[in-house]
Computed example of a mutant assay.
Amino acid sequence: MLADSLSAELDAVRNLLGTKQSEAEALGSLWTSFRQRKEQLLKAVEDIEEHADHQSFKEPGLHALQQRLRFFNQLEDELQSHQHEEQWLRDKGSKLAHRDAELAGEVLREISLLETTWEDTKQLITERQEQCNVLIELMKEYQLLKTSISGVIESTEPFVDISSVLKDHEETRRSLTKHEGVKIEMASRQHEVDRFSGKGKQLMMELKKIPECNAETMKKDMETLVDQWLDVSLTSGGDATRVQRINSKKTEILSASSFNNN
């Protein structure tokens, strides 16, 4: 009886040891799998973060900005494609921490590192997307104003030849009418030039926030159009004054001639 009892107890101990060993092996296997998959996911997220942080943008333009936004949208989709894996690691990390007190601290540190990297990457992508959206709206307004202002400048016909004014009284009248029309048109559109200049400056400020972005071309483009506007404004005003003086002189001459003939 004693031998049977000892044998039964020995079997129980062996079973217990076997169970403990199996549990230890299962825990070790889970820990190995957890660390491997964590390293793989962490590397993938870090690569996405690096791409988001170092995406170059050298020649600003509406199409280029739209392409840039699509790039960050794709990075967002790529990050989200790893969401299932990230959740698996959270769940398995929680189980590991509960099953082995010695591993709990290390598991929590691993999970914390992954979560921090994930959130930083997500935030970076969001900031880049918001920046692109702001720039796209500014660029659209800038280009609309540029088109409108350029249209006004191009619609101003070559200013009247002074020699023709001296010969033709009717030409003088048409020239005065044309110049007055140009002055009125440009005065009514001055607010667009002011807005264009303001939007251009906003664009410059936002573009300077992007590393390696060359905004000089756009700056020169803006300054050239504003200079053209000022040139046309000054020329139209000056020519109108000259035509008026010529017209007055012609009137005096014609009046004197008429008086002498009488």
Rank of each mutant, 00 (worst) to 15 (best):
R109Q: 11
R68C: 00
G61M: 00
S197V: 11
R35D: 14
H82P: 03
E85T: 08
E119H: 06
T251L: 13
K201V: 15
H179E: 03
L89A: 01
R70D: 09
F72S: 00
F34R: 01
Q80N: 15
I125Y: 01
A44H: 00
Q190D: 14
G238V: 07
E78N: 12
S81Y: 03
T251C: 07
E86H: 13
I210K: 01
D4N: 12
M1E: 13
K20N: 09
R35W: 11
S188F: 10
R68D: 02
E180K: 05
V243L: 05
F196G: 06
L114T: 02
E206D: 10
L89V: 06
I153F: 04
T235F: 10
Q87W: 08
S5C: 09
G238P: 03
E85C: 08
T121H: 08
G238H: 12
L96Q: 04
T156D: 08
E154I: 05
L207F: 09
L17E: 04
H51A: 14
S257M: 14
S150M: 08
L69H: 06
F34M: 04
K208W: 12
L42P: 07
D4F: 10
S148R: 12
E78M: 13
Y142S: 07
I253K: 10
G238D: 11
E154L: 02
K58G: 00
A240E: 09
S163F: 02
Q67F: 05
Q80W: 08
L234A: 15
T235V: 12
T251F: 13
H54M: 11
A3N: 06
K220A: 15
L145A: 03
K209E: 12
L108V: 12
L16M: 08
W31D: 14
K219F: 09
G105P: 00
S155P: 02
T32I: 12
H82C: 08
E46Y: 00
T217M: 08
S255T: 12
Q40C: 06
G198W: 09
I246G: 00
E39K: 14
K209H: 14
I184E: 14
V182N: 07
K43L: 07
A26R: 00
D239H: 13
D161E: 01
N260C: 10
Q131V: 01
T224A: 14
M218V: 02
K146Y: 07
